[in-house]
């Protein structure tokens, strides 16, 4: 998941905590193996290998594709799982390596959910295009691990994958305390939230960005022009019932750029923004 993953369980039985930890790690590994874009044995690798031919996907992948289709539709095309190819031009490593406009433009024909044919369970992905569940994968993994642990454990627990988290119940001390990092000052919480149960997800360029000529380019790319969304807050944290929902809301808000707050207000979401 490319970030620290943890499961906090309030228990005085170490063996129980270890058992749940193993369960969480197994579910997390399963999702990573299945949907990672870095592995050649993943479902994604198989889809890409089909190179334009119809490919029948398994039910879980089909659900993710349905979800991605709905997110693409409801965001007016801003949320797009085919935008990963833009990474060929963009590397968000904190450096000043902002790509050529031409290099970005050359990739645009390979971007756009409307270009692929998705009729559950058959996907036809035009050759050269790629799909990538990176925008929802981590939050989805949090929810899946949450469900797996909840089946086995009634003690208060919290699943936290790099700041995207979900808790089932308040610990004895009253609430889970969650800090939101201030960009540029890692490990320093700029806001402290209390969570009893529910999910929090944060989206932003807290860790992944480019900076050139005083302009900060966050890693949220607008799939329609291939460039980072401008004027977006540095980070948006959203509370919701599931981590997937919270994560998507945070991402959709960032995609609005300067309109992030207005979007969140209009949606009636509880959120915290760092500019």
């Amino acid at each position: 998941m490319a970030s620290p993953c943890e499961l906090l369980v309030e228990s005085d039985r170490p063996e129980e905590a270890r058992e749940l930890g193993a369960l969480a790690a197994a579910e997390c590994a399963r999702i990573e193996r299945k949907f990672s874009r870095y592995r050649d044995d993943s479902v994604l690798a198989a889809i890409h290998a089909a190179a334009g031919r119809p490919f029948e996907v398994d039910p879980e992948t089909a659900q993710l594709l349905d979800f991605a289709a709905e997110c693409h539709a409801l965001s007016g095309g801003l949320f797009d799982i085919t935008s990963g190819v833009l990474r060929r031009a963009w590397t968000f490593d904190g450096s000043a390596r902002v790509p050529d406009a031409a290099a970005v433009a050359a990739l645009l024909p390979l971007v756009g959910f409307h270009r692929l044919r998705w009729r559950n369970p058959v996907l036809e992905l035009p050759a050269g295009m790629e799909i990538d569940f990176g925008g929802i994968g981590k939050e989805y993994a949090v929810d899946r691990v949450y469900d797996a642990v909840a089946m086995r454990c009634r003690r208060p627990f919290l699943v936290n994958f790099g700041g995207d988290l979900r808790a089932n119940a308040a610990p004895k001390s009253g609430a889970w305390r969650v800090g939101i990092e201030r960009p540029g000052a890692e490990r320093v919480a700029s806001k402290l939230l209390e969570l009893e149960h529910g999910a929090l997800a944060t989206s932003g360029d807290t860790r992944r960005y480019l900076e050139k000529d005083g302009v900060r380019y966050g890693h949220i790319l607008d799939p329609r022009d291939g460039w980072p969304v401008r004027g977006a807050p540095q980070s948006v944290t959203v509370a919701a019932s599931s981590c997937t929902e919270a994560g998507l809301l945070a991402t959709l808000a960032l995609l609005q750029g300067p309109g992030a707050r207005a979007f969140l207000d209009a949606e009636g979401v509880r959120y915290w923004v760092i500019d």
Binding site: Q63, L64, D66, F67, E70, C71, L74, Y140, D143, A240, S241, S242, T244, E245, L248, L249
Partner: peptide
């Protein structure tokens, strides 16, 4: 989104 996440 809520409906879609629940389906997912």
């Amino acid at each position: 989104l809520i409906a879609a996440s629940c389906a997912l």
